[in-house]
Design a protein around this nucleic acid. Sequence first.
DNA 1: GCCGTTTTCGGCCCGACTGTTTTCAGTCG
Length: 578
Amino acid sequence: MKTVRYTNQQLADTLYKIADLLEIKGEVIYKILAYRKAAESLTELPGDVNQYWEEGKLTDIPGVGKAIAEKIDELLSTGKMEFQDRLEAEVPSSLVEVLQVPDVGPKKVALFWREAGVTNLAELKAAANDGKLRDLPGMGPKSEAKVLAGIKALARRTDRMPLGKAWPFAQELLVFLSEIPGVQAVEAAGSLRRMRNTVGDLDLLAAAPDSGPVMDAFVGHPGVIEVLGQGEVKSSVEFSNNVRVQLWVHPPDRFGTALQYATGSKDHNVRLRELAIKRGLSLSDQAFTTEAGDEILCATEADVYSQLDLPMIPPELREDRGEVKAALTGNLPNLIRTQELGSELHTHSTWSDGKLSIREMAGEARKRGKQVLAITDHTYSLGVAGGLSVEELQEQRVEIDVVRDELGESIQLLHGCEVEIRADGTLDYPDEILAQLDIVIAALHTGLRQPRVRVTKRLLNAINNPHVDIIAHPTGRIIPNREGADLDMGAIFEAAAESGVALEINAHPSRLDLDDVYARQAVDMGILITVNTDAHSASDMDLLHFGVATARRAWIEPQQVINTWSYEKLVGWLRSRG
DNA sequence: GCCGTTTTCGGCCCGACTGTTTTCAGTCG
């Protein structure tokens, strides 16, 4: 009998904590890594862990074997885990916060705990201030000062930043780097290059024959407030906006291995190293090395992959989600590209909360090479966004027709709406009004905190309405502050597959909703995807590539996304839906 | 503790940087 409900994330957090405590305790590293791997796997799991548990399929989760499955089972059945309780009796769990301090790892935490009686952050700070750490083995005045600096850094450390913040800042720094004399190439690496929806530290690379002057110029950037480290190959700094940036500088003939290494992900790189080892090679950020000790240099990433007899794997796929196997067997997807999206199907005008008129939006869309633009303003329940009444919608239709006449064939305008799914699950316009529109998008904006069953039912109502063509930003999450609604995604996907409605990947970097994991699950079930900017202004239209990146992370190919279809095919599909 | 197109046992990436050391340990990515 089930007594406790844990979300995937809560369970993952428990496993992460166990890993931290084991590490402080001094367990063998591979046991710790196993717990972390299982935790990471849970955070990425598309389905609900409770369902795996109910079906007795916990060990189907990658990284979850017999031992961890038993512990999860105990926790979900009884709400307790004896292993964890015993561990916490042995190692104070408040030491986990001490482990968060930069430059303080498990060995130091154990040292401070066992030798100086430190059990939490406050005690660590007091001990460092009192000069009690400097005389411990392996410590000294500099290390003690580093602990205090680390505590300060921890206090001001912000969480991972949204991609929408990291991206423009990285572009700015890349321009700065590219202008340093001697620099031949620059590139952003890390999770930014893989286009994860949030980014921790920025990882940047420069190719230059002589790294010294580049490093000097980098740490001398006017925005740098602290140099955390500076070496020949790597330097690390903190900027005044609290963003930490690492720069690697490699000679041009080693740029390929360096870029591949720095792009990650860690797990993807592990897979590549395994392949290298099978070929008698070891792979590092510097080069391949043969067993005889000879180096094989790679100037480009394509060289790195080709050395392993692999096609180039796009950065967005490098998450160890089967991409290496797919590459080996010639089954990499033909990933969608931004320029293939000829239609923008979710935009707003001054009729509701947009900044531009219909005429101006059409001009901006045309400027960006669009052949089709749908105007989909909010409906009246969403008062804060100036939603349209039925009468206003009819007036808007008149204006659409006028602009259509002006534009001729240069761009096709669709008249639609983003119809509100009300708190009771009904839609804002009656069916006969929806039927008159070229395209209907339905979306949740309110009542996102309703209980799972209720909020899921609202969305199902919309999916099952024959006039609804698209579900916009399905979960309603806002990065980084707002969790999405507690939806039963399994039920949502089944209904969407059945009704043929398209699910949106909203391209705004604060949404990216559906996320990559859900989107991949959706297309695997044959559900159509639409990628839209939800533009409220001209500049919003330039955010499309974030949505496309999310689609690429979901292994999505062009034909699965309705925005790539010809106008005729798109309209045919819309008409067939009533 | 997990895992298997060489394996059910024996692996599990590896190098840069820093501060403490006189050759290495800890941390990080």
